[in-house]
Amino acid sequence: MRHVQHDSTPDHLSDGPSRGAGAESLHEADRIDGFGTDVPATLSWAVRVGAERGVDRSLSDDWSFLAAVASRDVGAARILEPHLDALDILDQAGRDGYDLDLASIQAGSESSWGVFAAEGAGMRLEAHDDDSGWRLTGTKPWCSLAQHLTHALVTAWVGDARRLFAVAVQTPEVTPHTGPWHARGLRQVVSAPVDFAAAPAVAVGEPGWYLRRPGFAAGGIGVAACWWGGALPLRDALAVAAQREGADQLSRLHLGRVDAALWTARLALRSAAQEIGRLPEASHPATLAARVRAIVAGAVETALAESARALGPLPLVGDEAHARRVADLEIYLSQHHGDRDLARIGADIAEGRGAW
């Protein structure tokens, strides 16, 4: 069953509802059969969304849109977010003066993009520059949707430094694995290793640019906006339960806890959009991103726990959309680094960085 959004659900972070191209894209999403579960159809929609985005949009608008997509289907947001993040990275590289010959890897407006930046034990992707240009060789872990994408931005090692590269995925030099992927949540978003055998690539920025750029923090918070939007229907379900005849105080208690947690997360996202928008004046964007992700992750964990306690097992076994949303959120939220991010915040404060 398709999630029907309640008027009371504040899935927008700005002061007004979605308008313009974003609103039209959401209306189109509502007409797609299998939105979020049909990967080719959802990915084609994501490519159209990326092509239609305006240049004058704000971070608040971007994150509101991601949240609205996740409130419809968590899997759809998981498919859309890295594509838009890749487009933002390429745009920023152009603004920073890097001349990218993307035509050499047949990348264009119809390309679908992923971002593969994870590292894994026993796996290493290296980049070498020969007479014909850059080549990638090795294995990259956790490459989401590699079997479906046309292109990806990939971090690879150049000596002791990591550098970002654009690469075509559907070529003989690139072999995506089909697994292992035994997940019960986000089952359609397979995140498995990819083997590269001297695959042609285009350097994006200098070594270390990908992690140093201000947009890195904004991208991390965009993922948190997806988590938050994905949890909003759980609040709706609790509201429905609390409105039933005979509902007791406990049902209202669970709803109140979730509402307060998600409302706090919304405030954190809105504040971050305003602060990051003042870059480079905003100090230590990585600390800000870690704080926001911690707040949002905690709120979503509260929503998952309280909805399980309040609603019991029935929706998990009798409501396919609810059960899938819970499973998808649990897998998606596992991207959060949790205690490590909190330790990083503590280190920043202890060393005099990231003051309020």
Rank of each mutant, 00 (worst) to 15 (best):
V4T: 13
V4C: 10
H6Y: 03
D11P: 00
L13S: 02
G20P: 10
A23H: 15
A23E: 13
L26C: 08
A29I: 02
D30E: 15
R31T: 15
I32A: 02
T42K: 01
A46M: 00
A51Q: 15
D56W: 11
R57C: 10
L59T: 06
S64E: 02
S64K: 02
A67C: 03
R72P: 05
D73N: 15
D73Y: 05
G75H: 06
G75F: 04
A76F: 00
A77G: 04
R78T: 11
E81K: 02
E81Y: 02
D85Q: 11
D85T: 13
L87Q: 12
D88W: 09
L90H: 00
A93N: 05
D99Y: 03
L100H: 07
D101Y: 10
A103I: 00
A103T: 12
Q106F: 11
E110N: 13
S111C: 06
S112T: 03
G114V: 02
V115Q: 03
A117C: 09
A118Y: 09
A118V: 03
A121Q: 15
R124H: 14
E126Y: 06
H128S: 15
D129P: 08
D129H: 15
D129C: 14
T137S: 15
T137Y: 03
A146N: 01
T150L: 00
T155H: 03
T155A: 04
A156W: 01
V158H: 10
V158L: 13
G159T: 05
F165E: 01
V167M: 04
A168N: 04
T171L: 14
H177Q: 14
H177N: 13
H177P: 05
P180L: 09
P180T: 10
A183K: 13
G185K: 02
L186N: 05
L186P: 03
A192K: 02
V194M: 04
P200Q: 11
A203M: 07
V204P: 01
G205P: 09
P207V: 06
Y210N: 13
G222F: 00
G222N: 04
G229V: 05
A231D: 07
L232V: 13
L234F: 12
R235G: 10
R235K: 06
A237L: 08
L238T: 07
L238E: 09
A242V: 06
A242N: 07
Q243F: 14
R244L: 14
G246Q: 08
A247C: 06
L250N: 11
L253Q: 14
H254E: 07
H254T: 08
G256E: 09
R257Q: 14
V258Q: 07
A260P: 05
R266M: 08
R270A: 14
S271N: 04
E275T: 09
P280C: 08
P285G: 06
R291K: 10
R291Y: 08
V292R: 01
I295F: 00
G298Y: 10
A303C: 07
L304Q: 05
S307I: 02
A308Y: 06
A308K: 08
R309Y: 12
A310T: 05
L311R: 05
P313M: 01
V317Q: 13
H322W: 15
A327Q: 12
L333W: 01
S334T: 03
H337I: 05
G338E: 11
L342Q: 14
I345K: 04
A347C: 06
G354I: 08
